[in-house]
Design a binder for these strands. Structure first.
Length: 236
DNA sequence: GCGACAG
DNA sequence: ATCTTGTCGC
């Protein structure tokens, strides 16, 4: 558990989160070098960024590890807009298959939106779903966009790639345990469960070698209505 | 008032 | 991020 000091400002996420992520990597290097991941999936953007250098780039440079930016929303930069046209392209991803390049006004390919990851794992997808929100994959460090997209999709059991999802789940759990526990020790009723993100079908097939552990995690709590940003964060 | 807004 | 609302599967 750490305490964040920097507030969240769009475009400056790295300045808030990277110091803690970097420290985790360094601790790993020192104490458990055998567990050092070959690549990090970072919750945020890489080059898909106002200045072409999002948190995934930032962390990549400081750790010298390959990094992939995995964002859940389109950061509207370099002329990219989450407008009707874009949404239509996203909607087509379902049927068209994979993804398309996000080309900024500058002529740079900034990223790739990816739809539902593996059709083989989710065939019930076609029940009449519209909620297909994409992931926005961008290069962080030392990896091509194509490899980043492939790797990310291989890690997806649900919408959120499993390394990111598990970091999320584990960090929330850690925080919940740390601060009293209004949680779920008894999943009693078949009704009152926490609805999980994704769709319906998923053939229970797990890829043998999820190739990449990863880093990431943090949850913030409003921390009172003081304007001073004192947020609490879980790491793992 | 309205749109933006990675997490 | 957090919050609501709605849908679907078990």
């Amino acid at each position: 558990m750490v305490s964040l000091t920097a507030p969240y400002v769009s475009g400056f996420l790295a300045f808030r989160e990277v110091p803690f992520l970097l420290e985790l990597v360094q601790q790993l290097r020192e104490k458990e070098p055998g567990l050092m991941p070959q690549v990090l999936l970072v919750d945020g953007n890489g080059v898909l960024h106002h200045r072409g250098f999002g948190v995934a780039c930032h962390l990549g440079v400081l750790t010298d590890l390959p990094c992939v930016g995995v964002a859940k929303k389109l950061l509207q930069v370099d002329g990219l807009e989450n407008n009707a046209l874009h949404k239509e392209k996203i909607r087509l991803l379902q049927t068209q298959g994979d993804s398309f390049p996000l080309l900024g006004d500058s002529g740079t390919v900034l990223g790739m939106p990816t739809g539902q990851p593996s059709p083989s794992l989710s065939q019930a997808l076609r029940s009449h779903d519209r909620s297909t929100r994409p992931l926005y994959i961008s290069v962080g460090h030392r990896m091509s966009l194509e490899a980043a997209v492939r790797l990310t999709r291989c890690c997806c059991r649900f919408r959120i790639p499993e390394p990111v999802r598990q970091a999320d789940i584990c960090s929330r759990e850690h925080i919940r345990k740390s601060l009293g526990l209004p949680g779920p020790p008894t999943p009693r009723s078949p009704k009152a469960q926490r609805p999980v993100a994704c769709p319906k079908g998923d053939s229970g097939e797990s890829s043998g070698g999820a190739p990449s552990p990863q880093r990431q995690a943090d949850r913030t709590t409003p921390g009172g209505r003081r304007s001073t940003a004192q947020h609490q964060v879980g790491q793992r």
